[in-house]
Design a protein around this nucleic acid. Sequence first.
DNA 1: GCATGAAAAATACCC
DNA 2: ACGGGTATTTTTCATGCG
Length: 793
Amino acid sequence: MKKTFWLLDINNELHGDKSEVWMWGIDSEGKRVLIIDRSFQDYFYLVLKEGASSETVTKQITKTTFPMIVKSELVNKKYFGKTVKAIKLYCQNPDVMPKYSKAMRKLDGVNECLEDDLRYSMRYLIDNDIVPCGWHEADVQESMEKVKARTDVIYEAQTAPKRAKDAKQPRLRILGFSLVCYSDKGTAKPDKNPIVVISTATNTGEKKQLVAENENDKDIIASFAEFVRKFDPDLIVGFGTNSHDWSYLIARAKKHGISFFVDRTDTAPHTSVYGHVSLTGRANVDWYDYADELSEVKLKTLENIADYLEAFKREKRKFIDEAEIPLYWQDKQKRPGLLKFSEDNTASIMGISDAMLDFAVQLSALVGLPLDHVGTAAVGFRTEWYLTREAHKIDELVPKRQERPYIPYTGGMVTAPEPGMHENVAVLDFKSMYPNIMITYNISPDTYVPAEDPEPRGGVYVAPEVKHKFRKEPPGLYKTVLTHLIAARDEIRVELGKLSPKSPEYRALDARQKAVKVITNAAYGYTGWVGARWYVKPVAEAAAAWGRETIQQTIKQAQRLGLEVIYSDTDSVFVANEPAKIGKLSQEIGKTLGLEIKPDKVYTRILFTEAKKRYCGLLPNGDLDIVGLEVVRGDWAAVAKNLQERVLEILLKEKSPPKATDYVRKYIADVKSGKVPYGEFIIWKTLTKAPEEYSVKAPHVEAAKLLKKEGLDLTLGDKVGYVIVKGEGKLYTKAKPYMFATEKDVDTEYYVANQVVPAAARILAMFNVREEELYGTRMGKTSLSDFLPEEHE
DNA sequence: GCATGAAAAATACCC
DNA sequence: ACGGGTATTTTTCATGCG
C-alpha cells in the first residue's frame, strides 16, 4: 500500500547487527506513523591512487579482516572537480565504519577514504532525497513485529520514500513548557535544588501548571511526563531547554529514582549532535537557538524576544529576576506572582513558536537537517549540509573535515565617508554581490586551478590582485548551488505577490524565502571558514578581490557620470540622489560587470562623522536609520543611548545644533540630580570566556566574579549587567552587578563623563560643539560670553 | 615613582 | 565553531623624566 507522510523525525536503530531507519511522521489523514526501512545499506568510499587497480585493493579486504563489509563496487566519482575511481564499500553496521576507514586508508593503492563520517540517518536522507518537514510517499506494509513506539500505526517500508507533491503542512500538536527551579541562594543546582513550578501549555489551548508541594518535585516531574505522553505532542518547545531544562529534569528524575520518558519510544532524552536534546519521534525545539536570527534584540532573554516578536503582551508581564525567585517563593503572599510569571513564560514561548516555527520548518526542509537539529547547528554546518546534498547530486565526494591553521585574508573595501550632513542621498546596493560574483566567475573549490597546474581547456577566470584561477567550464558546485538558490528566491517572491500577506500560505512561503536568503548569504562566509569541509582559501580570497574590484569600478563609474559618492562599504555606495544618473550607472554596471546594482533606499538627509560604518539617516517617512552608533549598540548604557538618539533626532529633523546642545545640558543636569531611572545605568557585556581566563581586569569580568561569589552561575556567552558605582580606583573595581547596587550607589559623574558626553559629543563635534560646552549649565548660547572660552577661577 | 602615550585586549558593530 | 573591516573603551606596558 502507498503511504504519504510528512517527515518529523528520523533515527536509526540496531536490529540484531543490522541498522535500520525509523522515520516518524504524520500521514495525510493526520495519523502519527512510524515507518521502518530495513533495506538501506550504509557505505563509504575508498578513493584509488591514480593508476592503481581496484583488484589490488579489493584483494586486501577480506571477510576475516573486515567482516562487516557486505558488498563492493567500482564507481566513478569526482573529488574537487577531478574525476576519480573509487570503491564503494557497503557496510552492514555503520558503527564500525570509522574504524574500518582508518585501517583501509593505509591499504595499498588507496589514496583516501571518504564519507565514512556521514551519519547513517543523514546518509539515508541524502541518498533518497528525503527532506525533514516535507511530504513523501512510500510503499509500506503494516508491521507485524512488536515495536515499542507511541504512534497510531507502524509500517515497514517496501520501497524507499520518494518526495511527494508539496502540500499543506499537517496540523502539528505543540506543547510548550518552562521551569522554575528554586534555590534559596544563587543559581539552582539539580543535585540539591528542586524544580518548584512546571508550566505547560499546548496549541490546542490546554494549560497545566504543576507546583511542587513542600519543595518536593518528584510528583510534578512524573505528572509532567505523563501530561506530555497523554497529549502526545509532535513538537516540544521551550526557551533554553537544550542547555538547561532537559538536563535539569533528567537529573532530578534520576535523583528521585523515577523514569522520565517524554518521547515516543520510552527512552530518556539524550544530548546529540550540535548539542540538541533528542526526543525520539518528536521534535524538541529550543527557541533560544533561533535568537541569533534576531540581531536587533541585544539581550536575548525570553522576555525581550517575546516583546520583539510581539509574542506576548508586554504590559501584562511582571518580570522576576533569577535572584528574586526566593523572595517570591518563600513569601506565600507573593508566590502567586511567581506562578503567574512562570505561566507567562510558557505563554511567551508559545507566542514565539507562532512567530518562528514557519522559519524553522523551512530551514529544516531547505538544508535537510531534522527540525530538532537545524536550530542548534551553527550557520556553517547548515550551509555545509545544504552543500553536501547538492554535491551528492553531482557525484562530488564530500571532503573530510580537518584541522587547519587560521590565516587571514583581505576582505571587503570600505571608503572614508564625507563627514557632515548631506541632503537627498541614495544608497545603491549590489544584489547578492558575493553569490553573484561566485556565479559569474565560477569560483568554487572544484573549479580552482592552482598556479602550477596547466591551463584547462575552455580557459580560466583570473581574480584581480590575488590572481587565483578558476576554470570557466564546467559549472562548479557553488555556481550550481547559488544559481539554484537565487532563482528559487526570485520565484518565491513572485508567488508571494499573488498571496494575501495574512494567509498561512504567504507566511510559509515568506519563511521559505528567508531560509533561502540565509543560506545564500552564508555561502561566501563558509568559503573562508577554516573548519569547512570545502575550505579552499583562494576561493574566499578571490571572491573578496572581485568584490573590491566591483565596488571600485562602480565608484569610478559613478564619478565619471558626475555622481557625487559620499561613502561606500563592501557592496553598497552612497551617492547624491540623481535618478537619471543612477539609472545610467546601474545600466552600465549591469552591462560591464554583469551584476545588478540598484537604489535600496533614499535618505532625505544623512549625517556622517569621520568614522566608517557609523551614520544616521533620515528616511522620507520621518524614521531615523541609525547605523553603528552607540544607539544601536548593546554595550552602552541606555542613559547614553537615549540621549544620543534624541540629539540625532533634533539635528536631522530640526537642523538645530543649539537646541541639541541645550538638550544635552539639561539632560546632564537630570542625570546628576537623579532623575534618570536606575535601569538606564546598566551596561551589558558578553563574557567571551570564563571569568578567570581573562588576561586583563575588565569591569564586566569583575562584576561576573562578584556574581559567582554569590553562587550565581555564569557561563561563556552570558551577558553581565553591571553599573559603575561611586568610589576610588580603577573602573573595574567600581563595577557591580546591577542586582547588587541601587540608585544611590551610581557614579553619575562617570556616566556623564564616559557615557553621556562622549555619545553626544561624537555627534555634536560635527557642528563645532566642543565637549566642554556640553558641561555648561546655562541654557544655550544666548549671550556673547557663551561663545568665549570658559573662565577659570 | 610617576605621568604619558602607544599597544594590546576586549566587545560589538557593518556588510 | 560562517568571513574581514572598523570604532571605541579600558587596561597594560614601555618609556622618559630627573
